[in-house]
Design a binder for these strands. Structure first.
Length: 418
RNA sequence: GGAGCGGUGGCUGAGUGGUCGAAAGCGGCAGUUUGCUAAACUGUUGUACUAGGUAACUGGUACCGAGGGUUCGAAUCCCUCCUGCUCCGCCA
């Protein structure tokens, strides 16, 4: 959530509007100012009347104590009408507040000045490339063709059990993904991340806290009966670990990680990447999350990105770091670098990690603060990124380690993981 | 799932209709004393919103698990929900 105090000044409002314009999302722009003003005005009115009631109620207490029955009765009669009016006003206030939150909760984060301008992903900027595009003496097949031919992934039975975009891993590939999880976790542990095992099913407040709700509710699996959602990313439970808490400055930065399954409905992706392991309803990944002081967030964001890159480097995968442009940025993020690996079989770049600095946007929603050096409670900054998506990593390794006869060079993969 | 008892400030814990943002203790912070530490003593110590002020701050509103209700007035009375503990049942 953006700081709504910004809406109260001309300067702040302009900052918000400018950011919205850069994102190409001006849906809420017109309402913002009026909705904020209406809220302030209504609150002022209610508070004035509540003050009146409190003063007179106190007086009633005194009158009663003094035994002045006639005055007591007279005042009580007039206060009845005040109480009635206050009740009506408070109901109005609740509606105004609800509307205010409805609008505010759908306003995306302010963009960092360093985010390049652009309409969509074509305007994203490649920051750097690591490794060469690998050359093969034969035509490299997409991972799903090899996987199916080798009996590694059973897409048909995945569909039978759960529907499209579900799959069953057989034997070696199941073991590979499990080993990759260990590989990544061990590497990140050495870099200072503390491991967590978290709930995979979360309350609506958590989904709101990290920004999935309310605007994108359709994209997630939610169990109506329980009011709980399957996590779309480990970011949700991991970040909400500190929801509603005030941390001390000395504990920061906090770096956490978790290996979790992720569940996504992929609404609106019908017909896109229908084959293979690239776009599925359930996949596993390691998530990295940092809680940091505002002054450290840029540095820590770059570090987290480097930590994610370290996995790709270690496995010898060719990748590039891409700065998302203003029009391609996620709702909650202030600035994002995507890591895209080259897929020799698919013959394209594939996102395998997205490292974002959310600044205080999530912290404000989830109410995560820390006591700063001046002794004031302040929203901290959250940063997260995949470190990295395991399913896509498996897909990549299958493509990188194909042999001319359509096999997989398992020995080469083993060697990397050793 | 059944029965019983609870949920109050950073923590422990008092408060059962008005003077309660809430006793007391612990902890934290500042100071006095002290060669240093400790101890003792004194003061101070919640959050959000709102109005004013460059600001330190000052006034107001709200918050005693959450949401409703009764009342001129609710931490206190009523209802619903959530949650913790103990016992029983069930279960990996």
């Amino acid at each position: 959530m953006i700081d709504f105090q910004l809406l109260k000044t001309e300067e702040g409002l302009n900052r918000v509007l400018k950011s919205l314009a850069r994102r190409g999302d001006t849906s809420a722009a017109a309402e913002l100012k009026t909705v904020a003003e209406k809220r302030s005005a209504t609150i002022r009115e209610v508070e004035a009347l509540a003050n009146e009631r409190n003063v007179q109620s106190k007086k009633l207490g005194e009158l009663k104590a003094q035994g002045k029955e006639a005055e007591f009765d007279a005042l009580r009669e007039t206060m009845k009408t005040v109480a009635d009016r206050l009740k009506v006003l408070k109901e109005q206030e609740a509606k105004v507040e609800e509307n205010f939150l409805h609008v505010l909760a759908r306003v995306p984060n302010l963009l960092d000045d360093k985010v390049p301008d652009g309409k969509d992903e074509h305007a994203n900027v490649v920051v750097r490339k690591e490794g060469e595009i690998p050359q093969f003496a034969f035509d490299v097949k997409p991972h799903y063709e090899v996987a199916e031919a080798q009996g590694l992934v059973d897409f048909e039975r995945g569909v039978k059990i759960s529907g499209a975009r579900f799959y069953v891993y057989n034997e070696r590939i199941a073991r590979l993904e499990r080993r990759l999880a260990n590989y990544m976790l061990d590497k990140h542990a050495a870099a200072g991340y503390s491991e967590r095992m978290v709930p995979l099913v979360v309350k609506d407040e958590c989904m709101f806290g990290t920004g999935q709700f309310p605007k994108f509710a359709d994209e997630y699996y939610r169990m109506e009966k329980d009011g709980l959602s399957l996590i779309p990313t480990g970011e949700v439970p991991l970040t909400n670990i500190y929801a509603d808490e005030i941390l001390s400055e000395t504990e920061l930065p906090i770096s956490l990680m978790a290996f979790t399954p992720c569940f996504r409905r992929e609404a609106g992706s019908a017909g896109k990447d229908t084959r293979g392991l690239v776009r599925v309803h359930q996949f596993y990944k390691v998530e990295l999350v940092k809680f940091v002081r505002p002054e450290d967030s840029e540095r820590e964001w770059l570090r987290l990105t480097a930590d994610a890159e370290n996995i790709l480097k270690g496995l010898g995968l060719t990748y590039r770091v891409v700065a998302l442009c203003s029009g391609d940025m996620g709702f909650t993020s202030s600035i994002t670098y995507d890591l895209e690996i080259w897929m020799p079989g698919l013959k394209r770049w594939l996102e395998i990690s997205s490292c974002s600095n959310f600044k205080d946007f999530q912290a404000r929603r989830a109410k995560i603060r820390y006591k700063n050096a001046a002794g004031k409670n302040e929203y901290l900054h959250t940063i997260n990124g995949s470190g990295v998506a395991a399913g896509r990593l498996v897909a990549a390794l299958l493509e990188y380690h194909q042999t001319a006869d359509g096999n997989i060079d398992w020995a080469a993969i083993e060697k990397k993981l050793a």
